[in-house]
């Protein structure tokens, strides 16, 4: 069972990565407009790349 000594911290580390991702997305306003984001994904007028993502 010694393998647990590595595996549990690795699992926790991955969990922390997820948490960090959540905090990042929250800080960058990814949840400010849940309705709009859903539709924005299927619009293609940002093809000439004027960076329509994130604020």
């Amino acid at each position: 069972m010694n393998v647990l000594v590595y595996l549990v911290p690795v699992a926790l580390g991955l969990g922390l990565l997820g948490l960090a991702g959540f905090m990042w997305s929250l800080k960058h306003g990814q949840y400010d407009d849940l309705d709009g984001a859903a539709w924005r994904a299927i619009q293609d007028d940002d093809i000439d790349g004027d960076g329509d993502g994130g604020d």
Binding site: D32, D33, D35, G36, W39, D55
Partner: peptide, 8 residues
């Protein structure tokens, strides 16, 4: 830039 917030 002009950005619509659909929720609000």
């Amino acid at each position: 830039s002009a950005r619509v917030n659909l929720a609000s």
